[in-house]
């Protein structure tokens, strides 16, 4: 029961991050079009649009990664795995989930380490904006953790399907 609640809570977090990623995409369209229009109509340009939109690209990637993984949206070469069926296939899928889980943790740690250092040493971008770098960088470890949870959920799900069905016919 509790496991189910936790599981769905993580699912909700993944969905939320995915939503934010969509909002960012819309924001990019609006801000850049605004920039172009501004240049034409008022012949002025802003300092922040290009710099901030550059940072936002990384957050589209990281915030959406979890949900996209859940839905199998990352391209993979599944021809060999598709030749299998039942338990062997599920075991392979769980193995892949496990590998992705480990990767997400490593990337999460490395990006966290980077954001932390930027925060501690007060590193900023070398432009007029002087953006504190830890702010956009922080989204990378957050996204990695969400991905890690999704990988864990998929992994447990695949394992439980193997266990529950015995032969894994459900696959």
């Amino acid at each position: 029961m509790i496991i189910k609640i936790i599981d769905s809570a993580f699912g909700k977090v993944g969905d939320l991050c995915f939503k934010i990623s969509q909002i960012i995409t819309v924001f990019l369209v609006i801000s850049i079009t605004w920039e172009v229009a501004n240049r034409f109509l008022f012949s002025s340009s802003s300092v922040w649009v290009s710099e901030v939109s550059g940072y936002l690209v990384s957050s589209i990637l990281f915030l959406a990664a979890g949900r996209v993984y859940r839905e199998g949206g990352h391209v993979s070469m599944s021809i060999f795995v598709d030749m299998l069926s039942g338990s062997p296939k599920l075991v392979f899928m769980a193995l892949v989930d496990l590998l992705v889980l480990i990767l997400a943790l490593v990337v999460g740690y490395a990006t966290y380490d980077m954001a932390l250092l930027s925060y501690q040493l007060n590193w900023q971008s070398s432009t007029t904006l002087g953006m504190p770098l830890y702010i956009p960088q922080m989204l990378m470890p957050i996204g990695s953790v969400v991905l890690a949870f999704e990988a864990l959920r998929q992994c447990l799900r695949n394992i439980s399907r193997v266990v529950n069905t015995g032969q894994g016919e459900a696959a």
Binding site: S45, S46, V47, T128
Partner: peptide, 12 residues
Amino acid sequence: PVLQDLGASVVF
């Protein structure tokens, strides 16, 4: 900031 002092806007 020097460019801004001169009334220009700065692009990155």
